[in-house]
Design a protein around this nucleic acid. Sequence first.
DNA 1: TATGAGATCAACT
DNA 2: GTTGATCTCATAC
Length: 191
Amino acid sequence: MSPTRLGPTFFARSVHEVAPDLIGATFMVDGVGGRIVEVEAYHHTDPAAHSFGGQTDRNAVMFGPPGRVYVYRSYGIHWCMNFVCEPKGSASAVLLRAIEPIEGLARMRRRRGLKDERLLCSGPGRVCEALGVTVAHNGARIDRPPFALYARDGTPNVAAGVRIGITKAAELPWRYGEAGSRFLSKPFASR
DNA sequence: TATGAGATCAACT
DNA sequence: GTTGATCTCATAC
């Protein structure tokens, strides 16, 4: 049987429902990808969100319909990708931070210039490099080629923690991931 | 293992 | 002119 394909309906909910639900889902770009193990939620009322200060040329996609891809340049070097959530105009999104590489390992290694499977996609900039995502994909639909997103099978152990690399609203526990995965950009604090 | 600098661009002050 | 949703490499313990 074929797995459920996720599209705009899945994303037309609160980022805080979508983000944990994405853990364990399978994300593919042109046949290359794997299992999502780490994301972060950015809500439009959140000072750390790009949309917090209102719409600009860069963040315009965040203000559009859910189920689209928002790509931006980070630190002048890397690309980072988000999935737009909630009804159009709410300008909230989920940042894709890490996946467990499953399909297209050879292409990921070539793009990244690395052998270590663990470092291929363990961070937002790394994911984009490994999957070949650039600003050319900004605004694209998640449910149309080259993208494909499939609902998870089973129930992963989802952990939450504080987000990484931000200074505003740094205390909000809006980072979600699969507890214990080897492919996280950083482990979750255990209790 | 841990810390620090450099790369490089767009938004913002 | 400064900062940032980052990553890599170099140098120091």
